[in-house]
Simulated assay, not measured.
Amino acid sequence: MDKTVNLIKLSVGTESVEDLARWHQTRRAQAEDGLPRHVTRMWPKRQAEILNGGSIFWVIKGLVQCRQRVLRLDEVIGSDGIRRCAIVLDPQLHRTQSVLKRPFQGWRYLAPEDAPPDLPESRENDDALPVELNRALAEIGVI
């Protein structure tokens, strides 16, 4: 199987890519191996395609702004006895071109051809634009 699919998820309560990076460094967001993870109730049916080079694209303040490569999916049993999926992530965040995204619940699949491209490495460390300016530029298709 050589198909790949990505996930897309709202990063609720996150103000910036840097804010997401800080969250991923907290003990609460990490697995025992120190890798960041996102625990979700639903287990992806397209697991093999996700694990074949897929990433999770993060929507921050209404814009897709970055992605992280998915390393594996771990089973987690909550204190309530319910089986959940821990999406274990590469700690490196890759900034992407900003793309508007309306709110949605949970995660969704994102085809590679629909995923925004990564920013060139030369722009990875640029100062982040103010949210309003970033959104306005995305609305007119400049970034």
Rank of each mutant, 00 (worst) to 15 (best):
A48P: 02
S55T: 02
E32I: 10
P91H: 04
R41G: 15
Q105T: 08
Q68D: 05
S122P: 00
R22N: 09
V142M: 05
Y109F: 13
T26I: 01
G13Q: 08
Q65T: 14
H94E: 13
E32C: 00
V88A: 01
R95C: 06
G13F: 13
S122H: 11
C85F: 09
E49P: 02
F57I: 02
W58G: 02
A115K: 08
D19W: 00
I50T: 11
L100G: 04
K9T: 09
R41Y: 01
R69N: 00
R95E: 12
P103F: 07
W107P: 04
G62V: 04
M1G: 09
Q25T: 03
E49M: 14
D126W: 11
I87M: 15
T4D: 05
T40D: 00
E121Q: 13
Q97T: 03
L73E: 06
E139H: 09
E124D: 06
R84E: 11
N134W: 00
P116E: 06
V99M: 07
W23Y: 06
D19S: 15
S79K: 05
P36T: 03
P120T: 04
R83F: 05
R28L: 13
E18Q: 12
G81M: 02
S79P: 03
R41T: 07
D90P: 01
Q65M: 13
D80K: 08
D19N: 15
S98P: 12
L35T: 12
L35G: 00
L20R: 03
L71N: 15
H38I: 06
R84D: 06
W43F: 07
R95N: 10
R84I: 00
K45D: 04
G141R: 04
Q68P: 02
Y109N: 10
L93E: 10
A138D: 02
S98I: 00
W43Y: 05
V99A: 15
M42K: 14
W43E: 13
P120M: 15
Q97F: 09
I140L: 10
A21C: 11
P91Q: 01
T96P: 02
R83A: 14
R67N: 11
K45P: 06
E113K: 09
D90W: 07
R69S: 10
D90Y: 05
D2H: 15
P36A: 03
Q97G: 06
L119E: 04
L71V: 03
D74Q: 15
E49T: 03
